[in-house]
Amino acid sequence: MSTVPEITPAQARERLTHGALLIDVRDAHERATGMAEGALGIARGDLQRAPATHLPVLDREVVLICQSGRRSLDLATTLAGLGYTRIASVHGGTAAWRADGLPLVQPLQSDAERDFNERYSRHLLLPQVGVDGQRRLLASRVLVLGAGGLGAPASFYLAAAGVGHLRIADDDVVERSNLHRQILHTDASVGTPKVLSARERLLALNPHLDVDAVQLRVTSATVDALLDGVDVVLDGSDNFPLRYLLNDACVRHGIPLVYGAVERFTGQVSVFDAGRQRGVAPCYRCLFPEPPPPGSAPNCAEAGVLGVLPGMVGLLQATEVLKLLLGIGDSLVGRLLSFDALAMRFRETRLPPDPDCPLCAPGRAFPGYIDYAAFCSSV
């Protein structure tokens, strides 16, 4: 049990007026929301690494404060073990200080720093993200192919998460029948290009992003330019020719592809990364060597879809994109996640790479793009 005294915020303020040193040991992004008046901000890690630099006098009266009191007590106990004789921790931390109505101050910071710390505050608290991870997201580039049922919710959350460069490609315009599932668009957007509607909404959500709205039909002649400089591709397409083309291009350029598809009440998600992991990770052709016969897999316009279903699948895709960009967790590489909304049930299927895949088998040269429309109609 710790022998370090825990004191109330009022007692800490009283000690401060009599010469004690009050130190806020939270990280800078946490202090941005307000810190106890009179406190000096020194992050816990900095103080722990070089205590003598910040506290050269062992018998100086020092009071530590964090958000809830836990980190400050742990650090105070460590410092007491190093010989600091007059050290205490604020019970309840800054949260208790605020609840008691004691004065708070905002640390000096630029507008950009303030926006960063406030906007991404919940990300910054996650050890798996933190400041470095958030800056990595801001420097990342993602291609979202399609601003429809899957691309709309996925790009909304990628923008909110701070993915700094979003390239959205779609040649369609907003129709009223889109609005029950394509949440980027509004009734006022009907008749306007989807990519322009998407760009307006995304920048309204997060004005610091670079949103590249590309209004074109993706073909073999345009796909390479679309993938230029991209870290991850999110497939929000709704037809087989485009899925095969996008898969082939991602394998060619060594870019991970986050796949999603929906129909009626079911959806599926996976990650194809054969371009970077030959013989280890599958590509889309390993799952579907040949497209289904025409008419056997109708799109949403023909079969219908429950409005929330693309949102659920799109959010799963966005989650996979963020994990890939941050290098955290276990991605869906080699796994197909299927979802049945009516049964509210998920099922996972293992997807091994096809050693004879005509596209991604180890040592196989890229065969070139084909006539994908003809390929998908010839089965």
Rank of each mutant, 00 (worst) to 15 (best):
Q67F: 13
L124N: 04
F272I: 08
P291Y: 01
L47W: 11
P282T: 01
V90T: 03
P358N: 05
S72W: 03
N239F: 10
L351G: 07
A96D: 05
A374W: 07
G146Y: 04
V63H: 06
E320P: 08
P355F: 09
R199G: 07
G229F: 03
V173C: 06
E118G: 01
L47K: 05
A225I: 01
D356G: 14
P193I: 02
C360R: 03
A112Y: 08
A341H: 13
F272A: 11
L322F: 04
V218I: 15
D132I: 14
L342T: 12
L342R: 13
R199N: 09
V271G: 00
P310C: 03
L203N: 07
V144N: 11
R167D: 05
S338E: 13
V269A: 13
S296T: 15
A281S: 15
E30F: 12
R26Y: 00
H29T: 10
V214H: 11
G267D: 05
R243N: 10
D24K: 01
P5A: 12
P367S: 09
E118Q: 14
T77C: 05
V308Q: 07
T192Q: 14
H208K: 02
L326T: 02
L257H: 15
L40T: 14
A152T: 02
V321K: 07
L245E: 01
I42A: 13
M344K: 11
G267T: 03
G69S: 10
L359S: 07
E302Y: 10
R141G: 00
A281P: 12
V233A: 14
I7C: 12
A112M: 09
P291R: 02
A139G: 12
G149F: 02
L332V: 04
M1C: 10
A161E: 02
S189V: 00
A188C: 00
G236V: 00
P294S: 12
T266I: 08
E37W: 05
V57W: 10
S220G: 15
L234V: 10
R335M: 04
Q67H: 14
I328W: 10
Q11Y: 05
G254E: 06
V214Y: 00
V173D: 07
R350Y: 12
D231G: 07
L16E: 09
R176E: 13
A154E: 01
A169H: 10
G101V: 00
P9F: 09
A152W: 01
G34N: 02
E302K: 15
G295D: 08
F366D: 15
V163W: 05
L209T: 03
M1I: 06
A76E: 04
L82C: 08
V218M: 15
P292H: 05
D273L: 08
G130R: 10
A301V: 11
R98T: 15
E263F: 08
R60V: 03
L16T: 04
T94Q: 10
Q215N: 10
G191R: 07
